[in-house]
Simulated scan of single mutants.
Amino acid sequence: MTILLEAQNLSRYFGPNVAVQNIDITVKRGEILGFLGPNGAGKSTTMKMLSGNLAPDKGEIHINGFDLLSQPKQAKAQLGYLPENPPLYRELTVNEYLQHCARLNQLRGKQLKSAVATVIERCGLGDVQRRLIGQLSKGYQQRTGIAQAIVHNPAVVIFDEPTSGLDPLQIRQIRELIRELANEHSVILSTHILPEVEMLCDRVQIISKGQVMFAYSLKALHQQRLNSSLKITLAAPPELNELQTLMNVSTVEAVSANQFRILYHPEQDPTENLIASAVSKHWQLQELVREQDSLEDIFMHLIKDDAPLAEVKN
């Protein structure tokens, strides 16, 4: 797939403070990249650099082949941006505002009318296109913000907290719209909502203290942080110390009278031995589940580490 956004060695300093240091980002056509990090990690600074609102002290940014620093007009023409607080003109109607945004992106005449009509349809704004933006619900205002970001059909779209402040129905609708947009654009999604990342994103990049901690596909991410634990339920359980003495078992935790968590070293899976013992000793095994970290567990683990982890491409 074609790489539509590529940033290399991005760094930004504010006086003696390092906001971002040597960050690399690539996004391919048809891909959604989740960009995560705790408050103060450097997410907003990175988003501002990628969108051309803040110059990096070091590094390069190419958007659909154009250098953002030496060819800013051409590069920005390939970019759509929705900040956390959309730049809406509340006194204009949706149609008036989108026409204004289209003109800012050098669209004129029939091309302008066609572009505005297209994004109104794609973003579900047909019923409210003649209403003042200030009178719209938060969900429709967010849709209008997305529409302005894609009215010029950019190669890359950056969304910063796109579902912030929305109700559950609006969140679902905006997520569906973002997934649809990814069919034709590259999307960078910056959000604090971790389930949103799991539902929408193909890859995730986590930064902390201005450095990349993790750059994985979601599939590879879960494989890397698979918990070495099993949860078992036994109708006729033995004493806890008997479970503890099973081969390859590190620790046993009693969850309840009949349920236990078995911890083990990743290279020494006790599953087969556990099943064989349960059958031969009549423990009446009712459940055996391999436990896995949630993305929240993974996120918290990574941002507590001091050193960045190696990047994995798959």
Results as ranks from 00 to 15, higher is better:
residue 36 L to A: 06
residue 233 T to N: 09
residue 182 A to H: 02
residue 83 P to L: 01
residue 263 L to Q: 13
residue 169 L to P: 13
residue 49 M to K: 02
residue 117 A to E: 13
residue 35 F to A: 02
residue 8 Q to R: 15
residue 72 P to Q: 01
residue 278 A to S: 10
residue 139 G to H: 14
residue 291 E to S: 09
residue 175 R to M: 03
residue 188 I to A: 08
residue 233 T to A: 06
residue 159 F to M: 00
residue 102 A to Q: 01
residue 167 D to S: 01
residue 20 V to T: 06
residue 174 I to T: 00
residue 171 I to S: 05
residue 45 T to L: 10
residue 161 E to P: 00
residue 60 E to S: 11
residue 158 I to T: 01
residue 144 T to V: 12
residue 278 A to W: 02
residue 87 P to I: 06
residue 172 R to N: 14
residue 80 G to D: 09
residue 240 L to Y: 03
residue 248 N to M: 08
residue 199 M to K: 15
residue 78 Q to S: 04
residue 214 F to A: 04
residue 2 T to H: 13
residue 304 K to P: 02
residue 110 K to F: 09
residue 283 W to S: 02
residue 254 A to Y: 15
residue 108 R to L: 04
residue 156 V to E: 07
residue 65 G to Q: 05
residue 66 F to G: 00
residue 145 G to M: 06
residue 292 Q to D: 10
residue 124 G to V: 00
residue 32 I to C: 04
residue 311 E to Y: 15
residue 30 G to A: 01
residue 34 G to W: 14
residue 85 N to R: 13
residue 302 L to I: 11
residue 79 L to N: 00
residue 143 R to W: 11
residue 124 G to Q: 07
residue 129 Q to R: 12
residue 103 R to D: 02
residue 20 V to R: 14
residue 3 I to A: 07
residue 121 E to L: 04
residue 80 G to I: 02
residue 37 G to N: 07
residue 281 K to W: 10
residue 269 D to H: 11
residue 94 V to R: 12
residue 188 I to E: 09
residue 62 H to C: 03
residue 161 E to T: 00
residue 275 I to R: 05
residue 256 S to A: 08
residue 186 S to T: 02
residue 69 L to K: 13
residue 247 M to T: 13
residue 45 T to V: 11
residue 273 N to T: 10
residue 269 D to M: 02
